[in-house]
């Protein structure tokens, strides 16, 4: 067992301190150290997007980033997408469009869509499909997900 490092990072707007081994990924620390299990593991090798989080404004697979690398950075996870006032428009659109079935990929898709729409609410189907190509869903065939993201973009633009 290796020695642990003390890390301070900002997660969903709050400063968080934790101890981790240098070999632990951000995904593992979120889930196993901080008990934030909303971020999911589908492959642990960067090929499914279930563990998508936003670090310093960039969408990343948290399984591919070491937790020690987040020192001093800001991280947004699925737990930080809704506010105390209500759901994020993307979450609301996913519910209304029935854009989830089993739901295991849903947090990753919502975080990925957030990273897109907050910069670019004016998107078309091709842009959404291209952006979400790093997130695998095996249940929906993507149709309702793409529609939900397009709809959410419209709502965010209007709001």
């Amino acid at each position: 067992m290796s020695k642990k490092t003390h890390v301070t990072t900002n997660i969903n707007g709050s400063d968080v301190e934790f101890l981790c081994e240098s070999r632990q990924s951000l995904l593992e620390v979120l889930r196993d150290v901080l008990n934030m299990t909303g971020t999911k593991e589908g492959c642990n090798d960067g090929n499914c997007g279930a563990c998508s989080v936003i670090v310093e404004g960039r969408l990343i697979d948290s399984c591919l980033m070491l937790a020690v690398e987040t020192e001093g950075k800001s991280v947004t996870t699925i737990e930080g997408v809704a506010s105390t006032d209500g759901l994020h428009p993307i979450q609301q659109a996913f519910l209304e469009h029935a854009a989830l079935q089993c739901g295991i990929c849903t947090p990753g898709f919502i975080v990925a869509a957030k990273a897109l729409l907050e910069r670019e609410p004016e998107v078309d189907e091709g842009r959404v499909r291209h952006w979400l190509a790093g997130n695998l869903c095996r249940c929906t065939g993507y149709d309702k997900i793409v529609r939900a993201v397009l709809d959410a973009g419209q709502r965010m633009k209007g709001g």
Partner: peptide, 9 residues
């Protein structure tokens, strides 16, 4: 069960 699934709960 939708809300729990879009919020990661």
């Amino acid at each position: 069960d939708g809300l729990e699934k879009v919020t990661g709960q």
